[in-house]
Structure formats: structure tokens, C-alpha cells
Design a protein around this nucleic acid. Structure first.
Lengths: 254, 254
DNA sequence: GCGTGCTCACGTACACTGTACCCAGTTCGG
DNA sequence: CCGAACTGGGTACAGTGTACGTGAGCACGC
């Protein structure tokens, strides 16, 4: 794909996201809609994993030929762009009352649940997210939470980036662990049992800390406990900054 | 792949990681070594992206046939396991002096640099990481940092999981953004310019906060500034907990 | 020494993937 | 009513991971 081709693809995605693609009147009535394709694709990705999401698989679920999908969507990349933005439009609107901390906590819990509902979100391109209508709405809501905390624009963005990055990072290990368990049929217990001979060889000799932690049961994979722990720490860290801002400290001192 | 097949593959990976595979004496001398294959694969993944990492590509770089690699490695999954653990054995040993905060900060900076050196790490299975020798060593070193802070075993693990998750989450967006820029030839400016018409349509109407933040220049993608910001917040959050522990608070109150 | 059998490299083949291209059938505007 | 516009879909191609089979090379037991 050349540079200009990718630029063209970007324009197409944007037009699709904002529904600016003009529909023709001539010709036979379409058997499908873009929304039906997107929702079917999301259902497949949710249930069978992102690895099972192929154009042929989606087409089969819709009882059409594989190439018919390309009448509605320029390619798989653009379809995924649509899936991402569509998923952001699911949940209920956020409660806009309460302090920034409880509201930001609610956002984190929402993202945590969202990633577990749609694990494929963690496996698609997210470096330069297409800002669709629903993604914009989510960002706007998150920003509104931090309005009035004394943070400037950059800091508000960075605060949201920090919490979102943490949730995404943790959700990725959590989601992949549970997917690995169900897909491979190797349970967590079997997994650790297989590694145990090698680990216990190493522990006690060169890795004393690992041995101590293993005895206290620290190695049971990322759980909700890890989420609750991190949530408090990250919000505590933000609270330190916000308290300093409200006490009137100069930005450079934060 | 059936359940028992995956269990077998797991055992093979472990044996490879710990070098317990006994070498035969009969037959012709091998033309390759497993280490050479792993290092070549890492070089390709670093330079050309994980998408370009195919068995045929690796074999071509080593001047052998694609199937020859399967004499040294059971499959691509196991090769990636080896690549991951190999990459953990690169950096210099950590400085073991100083307070927990500066040492943990150094770990975070190390991971940040590590992910930028090997972006493919963020795209491989990490839900149930195979604990190879080098991975164990890194974990041990991180745990040792938190020894004596008053945290118990579970909390030490959760603290490390929290910082690592945040670094990984942020690195993923950062790495993908820069890769997208070089691979597609669409610069950051062009990217935002393409979206601008749609965004400015929405701003001012329904998304006032976004408009304000955009004016203050908050939307320039994840940079080192985002990293420095998050680093302070996450460590501040941990410091709140550790200070409470040292003041003798009961764990349930944290 | 020498055959036996283990181990090597590698070619072929198969089931997948995304999607470019082409063609036949449908439907509406003029 | 007829041509233009549009639809669905078949075929084909260049990729992927890897199962399987074929010879060639090397070390050991006799």
C-alpha cells in the first residue's frame, strides 16, 4: 500500500465513520447494511476471538459471498475501524454527578468491563485511533470529569492517557490469560504445575524473593484483586497532583 | 490443536527455555543453532515489524530452507517464546542501591526503552508468559526493590503488575503510532489534518471540552511527556500506600 | 571396514488468509 | 423501454504455518 493509497483509505474510513457516504438510488436494493456487517463481525470477534475474524467467516454468517462485503466496506482495516467506534457507543451514558475521583473510577471500571466484553479491542491497531463519533463522545465525557480540578488541557489528556493505558495494559494480560485457558484447554493449575519443576529448581538458589512470594500465593495471575489494587494507586497518584494544584502550586512544581 | 497437543507444546517450550533438550551425537553436524535462529528472528521483528516475521523470511535470512527451522524449534509459537525470554536477557543489571522509588522508576524507564527497542513484544501472547530464566531474573530483581517497604507478597506482585501494565499500555500506543507513521507514510500532521474537518464540525457543538483541549495543544499523540507524567502519578500512588504501611496501618485499611 | 540407523536439509502440498478482477443479473432514470 | 448504475459472487493470486516424504551425511556396533 503506497502512501497515497493509505491516505485514500484513511479518507474512506472517515467518511464511513461519519456516515457521509452518499447512497445511490439506482441499481438493485442492497441485501445488507454496513451496520449489520459491523455487528456480525463484532459478535464473531467476541465469541471466537480476533483470530477467527475473517472476511469469509463474516460473509458465511451473513449468508453471502465473501466478496459481497467489499460493496459495503473498502477492506478489513476499515471494517475494524468501524467495529471499534461502534463498540464505544454501547454502554449507558455516564453519571455526571459526584466528585472527579468516583467518576473517573467509574470510567476505569467501564473500560475494564468493556475490554472483557470485547477482547479483540486489545488486539487491533490503536496507535492512531480514528476519532469516530462514539470515540469522541467518550473522550469528551472523560475530559468533562477533570474539568475544574485545576489541571490544564495537556494534563487532563495525560491523566486520561495514564488511566486508560493502565487499564488496557492490565486488561490485555487478564483477557489473554482467560482466553488461553479456554482455547487451549490448559487450566491455570496445569499451567503452573508444568512450570513448577523448573521454577522450584531456580528458587531457593538464585531467586529467594520469588520463593517467598510464591509461598504467600502471589502468583495466581491477574485477577480483579490486581485491578482493585492498581485502581487505588493510580487514582491516589492523580489525587496527589490535584490536591497540589488546588493548593495553588505552580504547574512546574508538580 | 487439541488440549493434549498444547500441553505437549508447553513442555517442549519449557525444555527449550531451560536448555534441557539433550543433543544427539549421531548424524551430520547441524548447520544452525537455536540461538542464531532466535537472534535472527529478533532482528527481523525489530526492523521489519512482527507482521513481516514469517518462518520463510527467517529461513531466507539464514540461507536455509523454511522447513529446516523446524529441526530446531517445534513451531512459530515456541520460537516466539524463546525470542521473548532472550530479549529479557539483554540489558545491563540493575543498580541495586538507592531507595525503592528511584529504583522502580529505573525499572519503568528500562521497560519503556525495551518496548521501543522491541516493539513486537507488545504484539505477542503475554497472558500466560512462559517463565524462562531471564524473565525470572527480571521479576526477582523487581521484587527485591520492594523488599522492606512493608508490602506483603501479594501487594509486591500487584505493585509490579500495576507499573508494568501502565508502561506496556502506554508503550503500545506510542510504538504503534510511530510505526504507523513510518509504515504508511502518513505523518502525524497529515493524520490530524485529515480528521480536522470532521472534528471541527463536532467541536463547539456537542464537544466543548475537546475544543478547549485542542486549542491548548493537548492532541499531539503519546510522547515522552505522557510517560513522565504517568510515571510520577503511578509512583506517587504507590508512595501513598507505602507511607501508610510504614506508619503501621493495618493492610485492610489501605 | 562397513552396513545400520539416526539425523540432517529441504521440496512439495494443503488449508488458510485478504482482496483484485471480472461477469451476470437487477433496478431505476431518462 | 433501454442503457447506465449498481448488486452479488466466482475465480485467482500471493501470502501464511506446517505435515509429510525424500535423500544425503555421519557415528556407532560388529
Amino acid at each position: 500500500m503506497t502512501s497515497s493509497e493509505r491516505a485514500e483509505s484513511l479518507k474512506r474510513s472517515l467518511a464511513l465513520l461519519w456516515g457521509k457516504a452518499d447512497e445511490p438510488t439506482r441499481g438493485p436494493k442492497p441485501a445488507l447494511t454496513r451496520e449489520r456487517i459491523v455487528e456480525t463481525a463484532i459478535a464473531i470477534a467476541d465469541q471466537e476471538g480476533v483470530g477467527a475474524l475473517s472476511m469469509r467467516r463474516i460473509a458465511a454468517a451473513l449468508n453471502v459471498g465473501a466478496m459481497s462485503l467489499y460493496r459495503y466496506v473498502p477492506g478489513k482495516d476499515e471494517l475494524i475501524d468501524l467495529m471499534v467506534d461502534h463498540s464505544y457507543g454501547e454502554g449507558p451514558a455516564l453519571d455526571e454527578t459526584g466528585g472527579w475521583r468516583e467518576r473517573l473510577e467509574a470510567v476505569c471500571r467501564g473500560e475494564w468491563a468493556h475490554y472483557h466484553r470485547h477482547p479483540w479491542l486489545l488486539h487491533v491497531q490503536q496507535g492512531r485511533p480514528l476519532m469516530g463519533p462514539n470515540a469522541l463522545l467518550s473522550t469528551e465525557a472523560a475530559l468533562r470529569i477533570l474539568d475544574g480540578t485545576g489541571l490544564d488541557g495537556r494534563e487532563m489528556i495525560d491523566a486520561i492517557v495514564t488511566t486508560s493505558s493502565w487499564v488496557a495494559g492490565l486488561a490485555r494480560t487478564s483477557v489473554e490469560a482467560s482466553r488461553a485457558a479456554t482455547e487451549t484447554g490448559v487450566s491455570d493449575d496445569e499451567w503452573w504445575a508444568a512450570q513448577e519443576p523448573y521454577l522450584s529448581d531456580a528458587m531457593g538458589e538464585r531467586y529467594p524473593m520469588l520463593g517467598r512470594v510464591a509461598e504467600s500465593g502471589g502468583f495466581d495471575g491477574p485477577t480483579d484483586r490486581s485491578f482493585e489494587f492498581g485502581l487505588r494507586r493510580v487514582l491516589d497518584g492523580l489525587e496527589v497532583l490535584i490536591a497540589a494544584r488546588r493548593a495553588g502550586e505552580h504547574p512546574d512544581a508538580g
